[in-house]
């Protein structure tokens, strides 16, 4: 049997842990965020997504070059265009599921109530977790796209690194938006499985269902071109796609009449519109998640 020698106050005195100052909100957010980041980076999903993202990115680069008659990996411009579709599929799924699993799984395992029994506020926990996961997504995206850039730069014919950098930035903003939605689901859900299931369903809605609904709506309700454009702004993935193409090509006519209308009607203002829409997807779900999380029981 171990011997115990604790008396009141003796632990701190004996082990040399000093009281420095009350933990500030920023300090707690940093501590929780760092913990979350380390956990995420060590997890299997991070490694799996990063490998898949990088592998698919390299494949897309090679295939896009081959299809245009090139002899191998293409330059950044064509690669960027190819990668947009890959990002649209992989990154939202990654961010939605990461966010959805965070709070709900902690709640399920009893970790959340233990954490909230410490001198921290719920807002600090939520933001800390968000920033930690955002850091892991940033690492995954930059690692994936960065490796693509390195290999393409090494092998490619023409290089436009700024377009890939811009795509990396936009991808990260999209990931933040999807992470916010995931965190909202996680705050609401009682179980992690429910939150992740809903996240996957939402991913399907964003990736596939919205396009189908827009097409059906156009036919059924004979939507005007400006209505079609306005509706497409509701889907963050559409916004990302339009913004990426607009940045790369300076015109959206590749998207058809709606893109042509947007380019002619709004011109350079499109950057502001797209940025506003994506930022709204980042901020609004997170604010709602904060409100829900503050009211809900952690047990």
């Amino acid at each position: 049997m171990s011997s115990f020698t604790i008396g009141s106050g003796s632990v701190m005195a004996a082990c040399g842990v000093d009281r420095v100052r009350p933990p500030s909100a920023a300090a707690n957010i940093f501590t929780i965020g760092r913990r979350e980041l380390r956990d995420a980076v060590r997890s299997r999903w991070f490694i799996l997504y990063t490998l898949a993202f990088t592998g698919l990115g390299l494949s897309v680069s090679y295939i896009s070059a081959a299809s245009t008659g090139g002899s191998g990996l293409s330059g950044f411009g064509r690669t960027t265009a190819g990668l947009i579709n890959l990002v649209l599929l992989v990154v939202p799924l990654m961010a939605l599921t990461a966010g959805a699993g965070s709070i709900a799984s902690d709640r399920e395992r009893g970790m959340l109530s233990y954490l909230l029994a410490q001198p921290v506020t719920r807002v600090e926990v939520l933001i800390g977790k968000y920033l930690g996961l955002a850091g892991s997504l940033f690492a995954c995206i930059t690692l994936g796209l960065g490796l693509c850039a390195l290999i393409v730069a090494w092998k490619g014919e023409a290089t436009r690194p700024q377009s890939l950098l811009w795509l990396t930035g936009l991808t990260f903003v999209l990931a933040l938006g999807m992470l916010s939605v995931g965190m909202l689901l996680s705050s609401v859900a009682r179980r992690a499985s429910g939150a992740i299931g809903t996240a996957i369903f939402l991913w399907l809605v964003f990736v596939f269902a919205t396009d189908l609904v827009l097409m059906a709506g156009t036919l059924a309700f004979k939507l005007r071109i400006q209505e079609l454009f306005a509706l497409s702004l509701v889907n963050p993935l559409q916004v990302f796609k339009m913004w990426s193409l607009h940045s790369a090509e300076a015109s959206l006519d590749v998207l058809g009449p709606a893109g042509l209308y947007a380019s002619e009607e709004y011109g350079p203002m499109l950057h502001v519109i797209f940025a506003g829409c994506l930022l709204a997807w980042v901020v609004l779900p997170l604010v709602v998640a904060g409100a829900v999380f503050s009211r809900r029981s952690p047990v």
Partner: peptide, 8 residues
């Protein structure tokens, strides 16, 4: 750290 302590 969450308690604002520096652990040595």
């Amino acid at each position: 750290r969450l308690k604002g302590l520096r652990s040595r």
